[in-house]
Design a protein around this nucleic acid. Structure first.
Lengths: 182, 182
DNA sequence: CAACAGCGTTCAGTATTTACAACACACTGA
DNA sequence: TCAGTGTGTTGTAAATACTGAACGCTGTTG
């Protein structure tokens, strides 16, 4: 697998534009464009700067490259999931061998007090999930729900939504979002 | 840790000169010189070519870089050993976190029929080892010995020596060589 | 519709890396 | 001692990557 495609899929998975990533990384958008198109082979220092804007280490970057040499992996051990955690919420992505995935299937853990941020989330697509442990508060389009172990949900992601754990035990959630550009 | 120092220590561990590695990698010796001195930041394609001459993947290269962020690692699991195999003989190096090691401590496996080559080895330093499984033939300065499980050895590496496994079971050897530039 | 903002791409010029060819040094053997 | 071979380093010229400013496209807003 080549560097360009890999960078692009990681960038899109993080929901960043070329310009946005370029600004965070301290390079120009044209640099990122050309790297993703494989019209240049970036220097180590450049790639390092770019990845710092994601953020991601060189090790992680090339580890992912290795893993997708095995394009037909079907089963994933817990330790094989990709960590895309954001803040206090840990999020682990299933299906690392599928760079152009249609579904972001996640294992998420919300410690007591954790949430997805003050702002309500809105994006295209649909999402579903099931709580496997603890209790979790879900707000969708102004309605507040409390999920308990075994409860599940499904809604259009365009509706403003937010997850919060105001309880005193960690909540473990299995979720799926499509498309995967969240 | 920087790219240059890491490349140099790997190259020396493999016993290669800048020119020798350059020839295998299809680059010039000056390129390798400047990379090791960190006077340039090589492009991914260049570094990939250089590492192909070792041979070593980008993943492994940067993995090593990460690991030595933890400079005080003392215990290593079997899966954590660095594979520096040569031919049929598998050799795994203990102490990856010590780039400027004084001792090359190896776990080696000789399948039936494997050997260290037709030529006798001679280099500076001293080496010792113990056979933990199977049987192994050791020749030192013209003398031929047969090691069995539990047997050990110690000799000056300047004496011509060779390991062979003419038996029908794999031989597993734990060895130490100093200095580590073998 | 027009203006705008965001997206990725492309082009010319600049900065950096790389190849080629020297160089200095150390060691070996005649 | 002196040629010969090995080592790593360092100029200069060619190749390549990177920047900055365009461009065309899409969707949004007044």
């Amino acid at each position: 697998m080549d560097v360009g495609v890999r960078l692009q899929s990681i960038r899109k998975l993080k929901g960043l534009s070329q310009r946005e990533l370029a600004k965070r990384a301290g390079v120009t958008n044209s640099t990122i464009s050309m790297i993703e198109k494989n019209s240049v082979s970036p220097s180590i220092s450049s790639l390092k700067k770019v990845l710092a804007g994601i953020p991601m280490s060189l090790v992680e970057f090339f580890s992912l490259e290795l893993e997708q040499d095995n394009p037909t992996q079907v089963v994933y051990k817990a330790s094989e999931l990709i960590d895309i955690s954001d803040g206090a919420v840990t999020m682990k992505l299933v299906g690392k061998a599928h760079p152009s995935r249609a579904i972001a299937f996640l294992s998420e853990t919300y410690p007591p007090g954790a949430d997805t941020g003050d702002e309500m989330l809105t994006h295209e697509g649909e999402e579903a999930g099931m709580l496997v442990d603890g209790k979790l508060e879900l707000t969708v389009a102004g309605e507040v729900y409390v999920l308990e172990s075994g409860d599940s949900y499904y809604f259009e992601s365009a509706k403003p939504h937010r997850f919060r754990n105001p309880f005193d035990v960690p909540a473990k959630l299995i979720s799926a979002t499509t498309p995967a550009n969240f």
